[in-house]
């Protein structure tokens, strides 16, 4: 009798646990435990047939199907290039300002954050094809792409044009950067690159190496870093914009920025 009462009182606790979890996997584990205890309750109430079925179907099979179902929907896939300060690998871990923002956002939605590194020019393509939800990695507000959704700028930046010739390049498209940033840095150190336009974070990272053969010119205008959201994901876009707005209002964005750039 006491055992039954204890098990019965555990049921609403587990149900509340499963409902209140932000992380879906934990919620599913809670549900599996719920049905396991429910089957024990059935057994104590002299319904062994029901108990066996409950344990086999709910605790094993349904839990498994839920786990498969959340494998795709439970993830926030971010594609990005590696940028020092914003989003970079540190041994096994990924850190940086954008990582902090994105992981906070993923935690708020109860999703698991997955970051994939891609060359810069492939980031919008990945978003168009629906392979990722968010594009990151020092994307400039002036990006020329009408299909993807853009957030507001979260950090002001500047653009620098570097070129080997005395006359600075006039065509910007030619000097747009492609490929991975680590490759770019190597090419710079080898002196292969003729001209390119860099944002502040990349420029600061490069300026540790020798930039004396290049003429540096700061481009006019106000620029800032933004995130890209995959097309037709208006709801995610809205959620992310309001999340960024809240970070900015609460002063947390400033705190984070100071931690990485000061």
């Amino acid at each position: 009798m006491i055992v039954l009462l204890v098990l019965l009182s555990l049921l609403p606790v587990l149900a509340a646990f499963a409902l209140s979890r932000r992380r879906r996997f934990t919620a599913i584990v809670g549900m599996g435990l719920f049905s396991l205890i429910l089957s024990a309750v059935y057994l104590l109430l002299h319904a062994p047939d029901v108990a066996v079925t409950e344990a086999a179907i709910n605790a094993a099979l349904i839990t498994f199907i839920y786990i498969i179902a959340i494998r795709k929907t439970g993830r926030l896939v971010v594609v990005s290039d590696e940028i020092p300060g914003l989003l970079y690998r540190e041994g096994e871990q990924i850190s940086g300002l954008e990582q902090e923002i994105l992981s906070g956002f993923a935690r708020q939605l109860g999703l698991e954050l997955v970051i994939r590194f891609l060359p810069v020019e492939q980031v919008p393509t990945a978003l168009h094809q629906g392979e990722a939800d968010i594009g990151a990695g020092g994307i400039i507000s002036e990006i020329d792409d009408n299909k993807v959704l853009k957030t507001q700028g979260y950090l002001p930046t500047a653009l620098y044009h570097l070129s080997r010739q005395t006359k600075p390049h006039l065509k910007q498209e030619e000097s747009a950067i492609t490929g991975f940033f680590s490759d770019l840095r190597e090419e710079f150190q080898a002196g292969k690159t003729q001209a390119c336009t860099l944002d502040l974070a990349r420029f600061v990272a490069l300026s540790r190496s020798d930039l004396s053969p290049y003429t540096v010119r700061r481009l006019d205008g106000l620029f800032s870093y933004i995130f890209l959201i995959a097309p037709a994901r208006e709801r995610l876009h809205h959620q992310f914009v309001s999340y960024l707005g809240k970070l900015e209002e609460g002063g947390e964005l400033e705190k984070l920025t100071r931690r990485y750039f000061s």
């Binding site: 047939d49 079925t53 086999a56």
Partner: peptide, 9 residues
């Protein structure tokens, strides 16, 4: 206790 349903699952 048992039966086709639970045994099959």
């Amino acid at each position: 206790p048992g039966g086709g349903f639970s045994g099959g699952v």
